[in-house]
Computed example of a mutant assay.
Amino acid sequence: MSDQVEEKIRNYRTAPFDARFPNTNQTRNCYQNYLDFHRCNKALSAKGQDTSPCQWYQRVYKSLCPLSWARRWDDQMEAGTFAGKI
């Protein structure tokens, strides 16, 4: 993994500003990072590569999303009823 990515993950405190979501309501930002985390994991796992770069998305969604949302989405993923496309 590149040194820049490792340094960003190590120095991570809270979700940085994302120009795609400029408004105060960060619901879409939360959901998008949740999807990006799972897409990243799926893509890198399929190629047999290290999935540690995906940790960035996980840290962002965990800092933005209420725990109950993430738990519910995880449960839906396990049950196969999750609405998002991963």
Results as ranks from 00 to 15, higher is better:
Trp73Tyr: 09
Leu44Met: 09
Val60Cys: 01
Gln58Asp: 08
Asn11Leu: 04
Ser63Tyr: 05
Arg72Ser: 14
Gln49His: 14
Asn23Met: 13
Pro66Lys: 11
Ala79Asp: 12
Ala70Gly: 11
Lys8Asn: 08
Pro22Leu: 08
Glu6Trp: 02
Gln58Trp: 09
Glu6Ala: 14
Gln58Thr: 02
Cys30Met: 06
Tyr57Met: 02
Phe37His: 08
Arg20His: 03
Asp50Val: 11
Cys40Ser: 07
Ala19Leu: 14
Lys85Tyr: 05
Ser2Pro: 11
Asp50Met: 06
Asp50Tyr: 04
Tyr31Asp: 14
Asn23Glu: 13
Asp36Asn: 06
Gln26Ser: 05
Ile9Lys: 13
Cys40Met: 03
Arg71Trp: 05
Arg71Met: 11
Gln32Trp: 11
Ser68Arg: 10
Asp18Phe: 00
Asp50Ser: 13
Pro16Leu: 09
Asn29Trp: 14
Gln32Glu: 14
Ala19Glu: 15
Arg13Tyr: 03
Arg72Ile: 09
Ala15Glu: 07
Trp69Thr: 09
Arg71Leu: 13
Ser68Cys: 05
Leu64Glu: 13
Asn25Ala: 07
Gly80Tyr: 01
Ala19Tyr: 15
Trp69Phe: 08
Thr14Val: 03
Gly80Trp: 00
Gly84Ile: 15
Pro66Asn: 09
Arg28Met: 12
Ser68Phe: 08
His38Tyr: 14
Val60Asn: 01
Gln55Gly: 12
Lys62Met: 00
Asn11Met: 05
Thr81Met: 00
Thr14Gly: 14
Lys42Ala: 11
Gln49Glu: 15
Ala15Phe: 03
Leu64Lys: 11
Phe17Asn: 02
Trp56Ser: 15
Tyr57Arg: 02
Lys8Val: 07
Arg10Ile: 01
Asp18Cys: 00
Ile86Lys: 10
Phe37Asp: 06
Lys62Ser: 01
Ser2Tyr: 00
Tyr34Lys: 00
Phe17Gln: 08
Arg72Phe: 10
Leu67Glu: 09
Lys47Asp: 15
Asn33Gly: 10
Trp56Pro: 14
Trp69Val: 03
Asn29Tyr: 15
Lys47Thr: 15
Arg13Ala: 07
Asn23Leu: 11
Phe21Val: 01
His38Ile: 11
Asp36Arg: 03
Ser2Trp: 01
Phe17Ile: 00
Asn41Gln: 12
Cys54Pro: 01
Glu6Cys: 02
Thr27Asn: 03
Gly80Asp: 00
Arg59Cys: 07
Tyr61Asn: 12
Phe21Lys: 00
Gln4Leu: 14
Gln26Leu: 12
Tyr61His: 14
Lys8Ile: 10
Ala46Pro: 01
Met77Ser: 02
Gly48Tyr: 01
Tyr57Ile: 02
Thr14Arg: 13
